[in-house]
């Protein structure tokens, strides 16, 4: 049995310990906001927060999660909600499929850096692919969140 703490709740699941966290979240527990994009850690669609940091859930076996707190795009955490508002404000999503991952990576960025520069944003967000090409709006939305945050 594996215990996973996701969005503040503990889920006990009976799976192969090697199963990547992504599939445990999507197929076993049933939160489908976290996406499968490539299965190899290239695209970032599967990002979740582990103790506030963005990790590719397709690359992390459930056995490696341990007691760490996980937050998915459906979860509640200050910077995520702030970013979601900015995403709406700037009409970021096109198809929207990669946006869970984009939002999680951006949340982790703001968790570690309350005033990121353009370069910081690029360095963080380089992990996520958007095939629709929403990068300019993502960047604007992150900057907007930073402004809101620093206004208090």
């Amino acid at each position: 049995m594996t215990k996973l703490k996701i969005n503040g709740e503990t889920h006990t699941i009976d799976v192969d310990p090697d199963m990547p966290l992504l599939w445990a979240i999507r197929d076993i527990i049933g939160f489908t906001g976290t996406k499968f994009g490539c299965g190899k850690g290239f695209c970032g669609a599967c990002m979740v927060l582990m103790n506030g940091n963005a990790v590719n859930s397709c690359q992390l076996p459930v056995s490696a999660v341990g007691d760490n707190e996980l937050i998915t795009v459906e979860g509640q955490t200050e910077n995520l909600q702030l970013l979601q508002k900015s995403w709406a404000e700037h009409n970021v999503p096109q198809c929207g499929f990669c946006q869970s991952g984009q939002l999680i990576t951006a949340t982790a960025l703001l968790n570690g850096n309350s005033n990121p520069s353009d370069e910081d944003i690029n360095n963080a967000m380089v992990r996520n692919i958007c095939r629709c090409g929403t990068y300019p709006r993502i960047k604007k939305a992150i900057n907007h969140s930073v402004e809101l945050k620093n206004k208090g």
Binding site: D27, G30, F31, T32, G33, T34, K35, F36, T72, V73, E74, Q84, W87, A88, N91, V92, P93, C95, G96, F97, Q99, S100, L103
Partner: peptide, 26 residues
Amino acid sequence: PSKDVENLSNGSAVFGLDKRLDNMKF
């Protein structure tokens, strides 16, 4: 603005990959 922007930003929009049925196999 798009009517779908919120659902597409909070994980609730159902893409093909997100469809689930009872007893569904993969």
